[in-house]
Design a protein around this nucleic acid. Sequence first.
DNA 1: ACAATTTACTGATAATTATCATATTTTTAA
DNA 2: TTAAAAATATGATAATTATCAGTAAATTGT
Lengths: 229, 229
Amino acid sequence: MESRCENCIVRQFNSLRAMSKEELKKVSDSKTTKTIKKGEPLFEEGDKLNGVYCVRNGVSKLSKLSANGKDQIVKLASKGEVLGQRSVISQESTNLSAIAVDDMEVCFIPKESINNTLQKNPNFTLEVLRHMAHDLKEADDVIVNISQKTVKQRMAEAFLYLKNNFGEDDDGFLALTLSREDISNVVGTATESAIRIISEFKKKGLIHTSGKKIGIKDERKLLELVEGF
Amino acid sequence: MESRCENCIVRQFNSLRAMSKEELKKVSDSKTTKTIKKGEPLFEEGDKLNGVYCVRNGVSKLSKLSANGKDQIVKLASKGEVLGQRSVISQESTNLSAIAVDDMEVCFIPKESINNTLQKNPNFTLEVLRHMAHDLKEADDVIVNISQKTVKQRMAEAFLYLKNNFGEDDDGFLALTLSREDISNVVGTATESAIRIISEFKKKGLIHTSGKKIGIKDERKLLELVEGF
DNA sequence: ACAATTTACTGATAATTATCATATTTTTAA
DNA sequence: TTAAAAATATGATAATTATCAGTAAATTGT
């Protein structure tokens, strides 16, 4: 894949597209590319970040550990997403851990490049702001979903979300394969409950599985379930 | 209270402090002051906002209606907070309703003043960005709390939150009095469940009540409860 | 290839929480 | 002030969800 930010297609999806040619050049010169293996962390809750991570390939889960030892996955980030922005902007340690769900390829961009551009290029700042506004809106939706919907509804929603955001493979399975535990951490339930609901959905013909892979069989019914029928 | 933004103390608490003298002057000339009575909306979910609201007095609940007809309160905003920013920035209709919990006094600032400054004053944009980063972090915490803590723990947390953010009156009651229904909508539970837990906390000497007013009696025990003892 | 470890699954049961019914108190408005 | 309406409160019960215990299957490392 192209190693100069100026030519990187990934950039199209995130706020880096609002950078000028010169700014991008600087970023490109200061960035380093990293490979993160499945299960390894990009960073962990409490870390002070010296830069942001731009995802070129693979998927990362952003999660927060609760007092009872369970992780809640707040977001799944894939190609084009920039991680660690919030921490760099507010100059605080991160409140989330980022762990690779897949093997990942990411670019690390030192915070200096970012902060510099934030102060000089209002367009870039505005673009970052728009992204953050969007994230915040999504977070509000998640809050309402978790508090108002049943686990079953949230499970159905999670499968639809996975299909819409990560697509399906050639055999009709969700392209992003998560462990049952990760699924339960996205949904915010006990692993056993998640597994039970998967079995139930399978029996009812809403989904089909093969090993840990899950495929959507009856999207309409899943949607109806989410809406509460 | 002072009616020129330049001299308004409220400004100190929000991103407007990053505006220049001239920008503030323009804002002040274009703003209008509104009084909102308890229970009335500043704006409602789905509205397209033509500006932002700067809270001078009173408290507003920001909530979202779910399919089953229940409101989830996502945030309580008081003096100094700016509402509707997100909608103005992303030029989308709001995803939240803002309803007065108290009688309120707010300044309406047309979006033109905001957008103009956003494009011209990187400091202001950065300041807004920082605020939004903070809100996003808080939203993440809410997600984790709701999904990982029991209703009882969240109730305890809500009381502590109310004390820390809105203080107590002379008689030791929480300064912000919410209806039981509002409390249940903050916590994300059924109203009856909230009431039951209030009774239980009262019996255990954690809180005391008088009418709808609630006072914290044993902060340490409430904290222990939140932490899971 | 195989033992070891992890992950997935199922059943039984307990704990939590919601819902429905109904009584009481408080607030509102004529 | 007083009837009506709304909010608060409590009990009984049902539904949902978590937890514990244990088995089966899959994955990993050697």
